[in-house]
């Protein structure tokens, strides 16, 4: 009986917490700009229009594929929905100096930050990359997806159009 009571109370306490899970606010974490400046994710802004946050690394082939695919259609996406993509690189000191040149060499028009201590990656429970999040005007996570298969960008765009 004693055990049962304790167990029930744990479940109750837990479900009280779970019941609060109405919102899916994007966490507030410090990342670094390529210039080396600390930037809090609270400062990610797009005038109340949707934002896409995509995790990538210079050594991740599918990530490059995903960002290349979105880069090809980015102008059209932006003029239709005003969406902005923020690319978060999880590269560490091994590749830090290469991130900017790599992204520029691909011609990517995205805002880029680094997450060298994986703080944002952990806060968002990212297991493996690519992992892509879609945020609505209130900066709530409304859609997310892991891995990239050719054509996945259409899924993302459909989700953007639904906002």
């Amino acid at each position: 009986m004693k055990k049962l009571l304790i167990f029930t109370s744990i479940i109750l306490a837990y479900s009280t917490c779970v019941a609060q899970d109405a919102t899916k606010l994007f966490p507030s974490i410090d990342v670094k700009s390529l210039e080396g400046k600390l930037v809090n994710t609270n400062e990610f802004k797009n005038d109340s229009r949707p934002m896409v946050v995509a995790f990538w690394a210079t050594w991740c082939k599918p990530c490059t594929k995903e960002l290349n695919a979105i880069s090809d259609v980015y102008d059209a996406w932006q003029s239709e929905t005003g969406v902005k993509l923020i690319a978060i690189s999880i590269d560490d000191a091994r590749n830090t100096a290469k991130i900017g040149p790599y992204a520029n060499g691909k011609g990517w028009p995205f805002e880029i930050y680094t997450d060298p201590n994986s703080d944002l990656k952990r806060a968002l429970n990212v297991n493996a990359i690519p992992h892509t999040f879609l945020l609505n005007a209130k900066k709530e996570i409304v859609w997310q997806h892991t891995s990239y298969l050719d054509g996945d960008e259409y899924e993302l765009y459909e989700a953007i159009l639904k906002l």
Partner: peptide
């Protein structure tokens, strides 16, 4: 039992109170 349960409920309601944006997540 009551003594044991009380803090648990407190934790539950503490979570619930100050934190409208509180959430549980994981992988």
């Amino acid at each position: 039992e009551k003594l044991l349960c009380a803090p648990l409920f407190c934790i539950g309601s503490l979570f619930a109170q100050g934190t409208e944006s509180g959430k549980i997540s994981g992988n």
